[in-house]
Nucleic acid binder design. Structure first.
Lengths: 251, 251
DNA sequence: GAGTCAAATAATTTCGAAAATTATATCCAC
DNA sequence: GTGGATATAATTTTCGAAATTATTTGACTC
């Protein structure tokens, strides 16, 4: 039975927000965080109940997620969470390195004092979280993880924010999302934490020194190491799930 | 063996087509071709009548177009055709050059005989159309123009088709659409035809010789020359529309 | 006249269910 | 049992109107 009065209480600060938009964000987070499994069917009625929305905003949200490469669809057959694969991991990682280094180069060339301050602030935030992270490395407390994800995202975004190229930023954001999704698989599997603070610090220092070459090299190293860790986790997962042969297609 | 390889009767274009999908394509074409003016408001009821669809598939189509950067929206205020600007033209052109040259490099490295044949076929198609184009250069017959657009799109797509990177291709397609939209503005304004066959031939020859450096250089030249022509057309348009001062921002 | 508020109007967003399509089960001949 | 047709069920897609939100209009005050 459904609730009698679905309260559409207006929270302060949520102006101009639509149900379709909030549902889009919720679904996106649930896919990236792995709450909705890769490759799984997204049944409309079920989702409409779970997220307490009608068909229209739900389909709108799923359509946007298709553009983000987080959902795939087949006409008249519905929607699925986009599958993950080792091939795509390599693909995403390589293209992200290309885009992100280009954006970082531009940002280091064009960034002013305001940019520097924003990057420093984001780095300090991230450092504070990373400092208290090794203690909880084994537990991987979800709220702390979410905090770190947010700070990590903000740090990498701040670095390239002065690129002066909205198009490049748009593509970078897309690829960052993909990378985050793959990275979280690795966390969910191995539950081991790789200390990345030194890598972040190296990128930060190089950027503040306006050493574009070093900053891009450090970024490439950071990305390739992370991709390598994810690759190992996914291989372990595949071997664990199906030691003999490949598994059947989604039907 | 396994009957899993059931040949899909789902050929793209016949089965699995939804109203939302066809409406998406029609709207996309109308925006890129300039039939729907840049910056203009997209009133839902009007569009629903014009395209003879209901609200659901219409909004789904518009939502997809947002992901293509062809439509912008503000919550509770509706949709607009994405505006065009000189700044974005430069931005799109630069990022496209980056992506397209990377993809071309990869394709030249990885392309096999099948790729070569496909590129040659696309080039021949395009050449045949371009050969009979100068005669109608002043008229710019719409059907011929559409043929050329299709062939040009196919040629550039074929060149990078062997890159082996679906993600790169996805980004390239996005940027190609943007470029085509800007280029069509130039055509609608100046109504003059720039002979680009030599540039296409140079890219084609370099690709067939597997000379990646030359092919990317020729591509960069081709793109920058086109962008320059569009820039001039847009400046003429702006000066024509508003001789006195700068034009108002979209808001 | 400029500014403010409230009512009226216009437009967008969302719901709920019917219509259309695909998937699954059932039956029958062989 | 197997294959094929048919009926049933499950699911997606679409429509049309209700609910919500934005914008305009007009009266009123300062």
């Amino acid at each position: 039975m459904k609730q009698g009065g679905t309260d559409r209480t207006e929270e302060p600060g949520t102006v101009g927000r639509t149900l379709a938009d909030t549902t889009y964000r919720r679904l996106r987070h649930d896919i990236i965080a792995g709450r909705l499994a890769a490759g799984s069917k997204l049944k409309l009625e079920g989702l409409a109940n779970e997220y307490a929305v009608g068909m229209s905003p739900l389909r709108e949200a799923l359509t946007r997620l298709m553009g983000d490469l987080l959902v795939v669809s087949e006409g008249q057959r519905g929607f699925w969470v986009a599958p993950l694969s080792l091939e795509e991991l390599d693909d995403v990682s390589r293209v992200r390195a290309l885009i992100e280094t280009e954006a970082l180069n531009l940002a280091i060339r064009h960034g002013d004092a305001v940019w520097e301050a924003a990057v420093r602030r984001a780095f300090d935030d991230l450092s504070a979280i990373e400092a208290r992270l090794p203690q909880t490395a084994d537990a991987l407390d979800p709220p702390v993880l979410e905090d770190w994800e947010r700070a990590n995202r903000a740090f990498h975004a701040a670095l390239v924010s002065a690129s002066g190229s909205p198009v490049l930023i748009k593509l970078r954001d897309l690829l960052y999302q993909q990378s985050e999704r793959y990275r979280r698989v690795s966390l969910n599997v191995s539950r081991r934490w790789r200390n990345v603070h030194d890598e972040h610090a190296a990128i930060f220092d190089a950027a503040m020194e306006r050493n574009a070459l070093k900053a891009t090299r450090m970024t490439e190293l950071h990305l390739s190491r992370t991709a390598e860790e994810v690759r190992r986790a996914m291989q372990a997962l595949a071997a664990d799930a199906n030691p003999a042969t490949n598994r059947p297609e989604t039907r």
